[in-house]
Every structure is written in C-alpha cells, then in structure tokens.
Design a protein around this nucleic acid. Structure first.
Length: 281
DNA sequence: CCAGCAGCCTGTGCGC
DNA sequence: TGCGCACAGGCTGCTG
C-alpha cells in the first residue's frame, strides 16, 4: 500500500501515542499476531517511533522494539473509545490485527486486509542488526540524501555494473529506500529515463538527475498528504491528495503532459510501469 | 553478489 | 445476477 512518504505521514500521526499510558494491548488470533501478546506484556509506553524506508520501528519501554511494516493494505487509525462497547466493536472488525488502548481513551488500531503487513517484537533495536534495515539504501525523504551513495549502490559492486532494468532497481530498498511502484514511474518520467534501460547504461548525469527526481517526487507527495489510490488514509482518516498530481502513473492511453503522445503501460517484474516512450529515453 | 520469480493474502472491478 | 479472471501502492526466500 504505502511508500516512504505515506509511511512518514502514518508515523507522524502515530506519535500521538508517545508517552501515553497504555492500559491494554489487544491482539487478533491471526497466526501472524497471536504470539506477540506475551512479548508485549511488560510494556506500558511508547518512547518513540522511527521510520526507515517503509518500515516503522516502535520503541517501547522495557527495552522492547517492534518492526512494523504496513505491507500493501496495513492501516493505523486512532479511535475514540469513551464507551466500552466501541472497543468491542472495533476489535471484532474483520481485519483487525492489533491495538493499543490508552488511559486517555485513545485506541491505536492496526488493520490489515491482505496480511502482508508485519509487527514483530525484538529485545534490541533491530536497526542495529536486522539485515534488511542495516542494508537499507539512502532514504528518498532524507534531508541529507547522498547522490554519491545512491549512484554507488545503483552501480553495484561488480565491475560490469547492474544488468537489471532501472524500473526494477528502484524497487530494491537496499539501493533506494522508500520508493515504491508509483513514485518509481513518476520519478523516471521526471528524469526522462526509460524504465527499461539497464542500470549499467545510465550516465552519471542521469543517475544524479534520477536521485534529484526521486527526492522531488517524495517531497511533493509528503506535502500533498500522500497518495490515496485505494486504502491509504492518515491515522485521522483523511485521504491524501498526491494522486491528483500524478503525471504518468495510472495514465495509460492518456496524452503525455509534456509532448501529448500516448502514455503506455508495461509490465516489469510483474508490476505495472507507466511511461512516455517519446520523452523517456 | 545479483536477477528473476513464486508465494504470501483479500478485495475489487471488469468482461462475459 | 453471478462467475472467473486480472489486478492491486510490498517484501521474502529460493533458484541458478
């Protein structure tokens, strides 16, 4: 579901839980979740929530951490439960997975339709040792984003460079963190680069331009409150507006905003990719 | 080390 | 109205 900017927006909303007193943790019976109840039994507060790429890292008291990923359809929301019946209703919802009930009455609830999401408990900060997190590439929202580091990872370690298509490489989080299928198409369009180009054919100038474009698109998405195609909403239930700003994503058969030629849709690695074959070389 | 692919899931929208 | 199919914003683990 969400890419880096959407996860950042979710994180900012969730920070409302910081330092609240958690009175009750409710976990669904789903096999992916039913074991975490015990491992959360000693926690009473959230100290902080961090984002790394599309992952949220929850930092609780008692030295407990969680790796939380929204997958495609994970949704956090803040619900009011002044009446006990409200709470019962919420936890019975079909895709309810996990919830933190606070003394204030706030109920922080995680739902996940396709259960691609995760909430896994650790006794140390997983950013220090979890391979996926340790190897994460530069983040598209990082103010100190390094084009040098991005290019280095894009080129890979072999002398011949990567043979993957750039459209696929941008979904590799160890190359660039926080980019997903939508912003992939948007930033390649902004860079005038054809998604089918092999990474090892890109010039340094093109890589730099791509690095810049990724940041421009991500920043714009963040300011627009994220993209709501289907499921994404803020924790307060608001849709994003970035989908109204798309230049290319989802615009098959529509005219290119630059040159008016017809936008095409192709399959790359099983995913839809949109491009203007005239503008993107 | 790298590229490609199946698999994990449910819901929706389309054509027939 | 119902059925089958393709598709959906992501990641992991396996193969070669």
């Amino acid at each position: 579901m969400p890419e880096g900017p959407e996860v950042e927006i979710v994180k900012r909303g969730l920070l409302a839980i910081k330092n609240q007193q958690i009175s009750q943790i409710i976990v669904s019976n789903h096999p992916k979740y039913n074991l975490i109840q015990d491992r959360l039994s000693h926690i009473s507060r959230v100290l902080d929530i961090h984002r790394i790429g599309k992952f949220l890292i929850w930092e609780f008291d008692s030295n407990v951490f969680a790796i939380n990923h929204l997958g495609m359809t994970g949704i956090w929301s803040i619900q009011n439960t002044k009446e006990e019946s409200n709470l019962q209703e919420l936890v019975l919802k079909k895709h309810f997975k996990l919830g933190f009930h606070c003394d204030s009455g706030d109920f922080f609830m995680f739902e996940d339709i396709r259960t691609f999401g995760r909430f896994e408990i650790y006794n140390d900060d997983p950013r220090k040792f979890h391979p996926t997190l340790v190897n994460m590439g530069p983040d598209i929202l990082d103010k100190n984003f390094s084009n040098v580091e991005f290019s280095k990872r894009l080129k890979g370690k072999g002398s011949r460079g990567r043979s993957a298509e750039i459209g696929n490489a941008l979904l590799n989080q160890s190359i660039i963190a926080g980019c997903g299928n939508i912003y992939k198409s948007e930033s390649l369009f902004l860079s005038n680069i054809d998604p089918r180009r092999k990474v090892n054919t890109l010039s340094d100038t093109e890589m730099n331009k791509l690095g810049e474009s990724l940041q421009i698109v991500a920043k714009k998405a963040l300011e627009a409150g994220g993209s709501t195609i289907r499921d994404f909403v803020t924790v307060d239930g608001y849709d994003g507006l970035m989908q109204n700003e798309f230049k290319i994503y989802g615009k098959e058969n529509e005219p290119c905003p630059n040159c008016q030629s017809t936008i095409i849709k192709i399959k790359q690695g099983g995913r839809s990719t949109y491009l203007c074959a005239k503008c993107q070389k």
